[in-house]
Simulated scan of single mutants.
Amino acid sequence: MIRKWLEQLLRRNQHPIAPTRTATRHTPDEIRAQDTANTSNGPQVLLRPFQIRPMDSGDLGELLGVFRQAIQVSAADQYDQQQRDAWSRAQSHESLISALSEGEAVVAEWDNVLVGFAHRINDYINMLFVHPNAGREGIATLLYQHLEDGARMEGITELAAHVSLTAHGFFHFMGFTSEGQEEAERNGVSLARYPMRKPLI
């Protein structure tokens, strides 16, 4: 499904519609409402204008909202409310800025809305979050692939990540292998996660 979607996207991007920062911006909820209303359009719903680009300072105000919504909604089946609260509060606006200040950070814009971001420090995938209202559209795949491509260009031969229960299946699909399960602590609360690795050679 993802392969077919990517092929359609690449064909379409021969004449891309590039979103601009000055265009009308919608919230992720508005995007999902529009998609629901237009389900009769079939595959065209998946081909809305979006782009993966480097993060800039103007994005920082939206990143924390994406981070917290992804945890509170997308991780609800794997972590209880106390765990999600502790995890989502582990980053403040200031700490997120600090965390993203080194390495490579990219964002996904969909209809000029910031709906996801990913961050790599050398050989470590530090963050990858997509707003739940933009989930299952291939955005996480393209965010990840951008980071992997950057790592390959830098001559990095292996990628590592600490992956939530929610993201384990995605990272496995992207070629990572689990090294068992461990517990991480966020604000005094324990959360299960997987250390994972992927060779690039």
Rank of each mutant, 00 (worst) to 15 (best):
R136A: 02
Q34K: 07
L47E: 15
L64S: 05
G61C: 11
G42I: 14
P49C: 11
D59C: 06
S40V: 15
Q78E: 00
N122W: 12
I125P: 00
A105I: 09
Q81S: 10
R89S: 11
L47P: 10
G65N: 10
R120P: 00
Q69Y: 14
H119R: 00
E109A: 13
I52E: 09
G61D: 09
L46K: 00
D80S: 13
T36N: 13
D35W: 12
I71C: 03
R84Y: 01
A90R: 07
L47G: 06
D59Y: 03
V130Q: 05
D85Y: 03
T36S: 14
P49L: 04
V113H: 08
A105Q: 03
Q69D: 10
D123L: 10
A76C: 14
R89W: 15
V107C: 13
D56W: 06
V130G: 03
G42S: 10
R136G: 15
A86L: 11
Y79H: 07
A33V: 02
F117P: 01
R48E: 00
R32K: 04
D77L: 11
A76I: 13
A90K: 06
Q44K: 06
W110S: 03
S88Q: 09
V130A: 07
Q69M: 03
S95I: 09
I97C: 12
L96N: 08
N126M: 05
P132H: 04
A105H: 05
V130C: 06
S74P: 03
Q78M: 01
R53I: 00
G42N: 15
V130E: 09
S74I: 07
Q78P: 04
P132V: 07
S101A: 08
L63Y: 01
S74L: 11
P43Q: 10
F50G: 02
I52H: 11
E94P: 13
A70G: 14
G65V: 05
F67A: 06
Q34M: 08
H93P: 14
R84A: 04
R68Q: 13
I121G: 00
T39H: 15
R48T: 00
Y124W: 04
E102S: 10
S74H: 12
D111M: 12
G103K: 06
D80M: 08
S57G: 15
E94H: 13
E104N: 05
A105R: 12
A37C: 02
A108L: 10
P132N: 08
S40C: 14
F67W: 05
L100I: 07
F67S: 02
Q83S: 05
T36M: 15
Q34H: 11
F129H: 03
D77T: 07
I125F: 13
Q34R: 09
F50L: 05
L96F: 04
R68V: 11
R48I: 04
L96A: 04
R136W: 14
A37F: 15
D111W: 10
P54H: 08
G103L: 08
R53K: 03
R68S: 02
I97K: 09
Q44V: 15
R32I: 14
Q83C: 08
A76E: 11
Q81Y: 07
A90P: 01
T39A: 15
F129Q: 01
S92P: 06
R68K: 13
G61T: 09
L64D: 14
S88E: 02
I121F: 03
A134E: 08
I125W: 06
A75D: 07
E62Y: 14
H131W: 10
A118C: 09
